[in-house]
């Protein structure tokens, strides 16, 4: 299969194996899906979640929204983010100041030697 193989100079990679494994995974998924309960009916009591007899909370209440994800990650990198986020001030002259400063640094780096 020469067309599929990607040569990277120090190795190679062939997507065909991934393709085969994806197909196998899909077949497995179908087998599990097909062996499910046949007596399931939409729109009846069966669809309702069973929470030990407690009333079902509102859908909005059980949805985990984006702000709640990666709390631990954000918390452990607190110091980094505390310094990084305020740099994005949203003031146009600050944007330009960054641009001029980097230009000056590069000029010093390249012109001086």
């Amino acid at each position: 299969m020469p067309d599929f193989t990607l040569f990277t100079g120090s190795g190679f990679w062939n997507p065909i194996f991934w393709f085969v494994s994806i197909i196998v995974a899909l077949i497995l998924i179908y087998i599990i899906y097909a062996s499910g309960e046949k007596g399931y009916k939409r729109g009846t009591e069966q669809v309702k979640p069973f929470i030990s007899g407690n009333p079902e909370p509102a859908k909005r209440g059980v949805q985990i929204s984006a702000g709640n994800l990666y709390w631990g990650y954000m918390d452990s990198l607190r110091v980094y983010y505390r310094n990084l986020i305020p740099l994005h001030t949203g003031i146009i002259t600050d944007y330009l100041l960054w641009m001029f400063c980097v230009t000056a640094i590069l000029l010093i780096l390249v012109v001086i030697p």
Partner: peptide, 14 residues
């Protein structure tokens, strides 16, 4: 993963 989860996953909202 965060974007995908918060857009598409979860119960159908009212």
């Amino acid at each position: 993963v965060k974007v995908f989860h918060s857009i598409f996953m979860g119960p159908r909202l009212l």
